[in-house]
């Protein structure tokens, strides 16, 4: 079971009455939350390029990173449009500080070894798959279109990670030990994925967003099946880290952003 009774606000079901402009701001914030997840994980994938265990994996990780970056670009572009601020994808990616990023903490964790990277990919892709699968029927046309494209990509990511978790879990003694250790590393960050907040719940009521709490069971079921088939154990965690959606991150994010943003910030307004 992932997480005990979640400390999140449970969706009240009551529709919040928003003005159109409030709603647009909320949709922008929701798109940003999804986009930041994809952007930060794309960065972590990019760090693997030229360092993967085999050449095929350099190609695969780059592919997955490119998919995530593509999702991030669509979502950030939309976020800056719909919220009325007119910020571009690059304004949002390069000119916000740590506390303004609303990605979950899972995606910012350092890559660790290949097992940690695959454990994180398995969890995150399983979650994203359930999310996008539902978001395809969002009443927001842009989000629905992004989700329709992304769900196919994410199905491949989930499949790729699944294959590796099976191989590593049921491979050699060393790989099994590393794969289990990797699951133990990422597990405390899983529950955050299923947390909502007032903003998300408001959008759920309007048929725009997906309720993250709804994703907990199907994601957990998928993960449990894979982990058990890989002869591994679902970690027994009592500590759950959270805060990303409020801009509370791990220390790792600051370094990631320092690297990602420094050049753009050195030449503000310059064309690239």
């Amino acid at each position: 079971m992932i997480g005990s009774k979640p400390a999140e606000l449970s969706p009240s079901g009551q529709a919040i009455t928003w003005s159109d402009s409030d709603k647009s701001v909320a949709v922008g914030a929701y798109a940003l939350r999804l986009g930041d997840d994809a952007l930060v994980l794309a960065h972590r994938m990019a760090e693997w390029i030229a360092s993967a265990p085999e050449l095929e994996e350099d190609v695969a990780l780059a592919n997955i990173g490119l998919d995530l970056l593509g999702q991030a670009r669509m979502l950030l572009t939309y976020a800056g449009e719909v919220d009325g601020t007119g910020r571009s994808e690059d304004d949002l990616a390069y000119f916000r500080d740590e506390r303004e990023f609303v990605n979950c903490q899972l995606v910012e964790l350092p890559n660790g070894d290949f097992a940690v990277t695959m454990a994180r990919m398995l969890v995150f892709a399983a979650y994203q798959y359930e999310l996008y699968d539902r978001l395809c029927s969002s009443s927001d046309e842009t989000l629905a279109a992004v989700a329709a494209k992304a769900v196919k990509e994410v199905a491949y990511h989930r499949d790729h990670a699944t294959r590796w978790v099976l191989r590593l879990g049921d491979g050699t003694a060393e790989s099994q030990q590393r794969m289990q250790a990797a699951l133990d590393v990422v597990w405390p960050y899983v529950s955050e994925l299923f947390e909502g907040n007032e903003l998300v719940h408001g959008l759920v009521g309007g048929g725009i967003a997906v309720d993250p709490a709804e994703l907990r069971d199907p994601t957990t079921d998928y993960l449990t099946t894979v982990i058990e088939q890989a002869t591994l154990t679902v970690p027994d965690t009592s500590v759950w880290h959270t805060g990303g959606r409020r801009g509370i991150h791990t220390e790792a994010l600051g370094y990631l952003l320092a690297e990602m943003q420094h050049l753009a910030r050195t030449h503000p307004g310059a064309p690239w």
């Binding site: 952007l39 960065h43 990019a46 760090e47 390029i49 030229a50 050449l55 350099d58 190609v59 780059a62 592919n63 990173g65 490119l66 970056l69 593509g70 991030a72 670009r73 950030l76 994808e89 690059d90 990616a93 390069y94 690297e259 990602m260 420094h262 050049l263 753009a264 030449h267 310059a270 690239w272």
Partner: peptide, 23 residues
């Protein structure tokens, strides 16, 4: 330079290029 590319468009192009080289 992938992780430091100064725009998301450039980052995507550079990633695709380096991926091509692996191919």
């Amino acid at each position: 330079w992938i992780t430091r590319a100064p725009s998301l468009k450039r980052k995507a192009i550079l990633m695709a290029k380096v991926q091509d080289e692996a191919g």
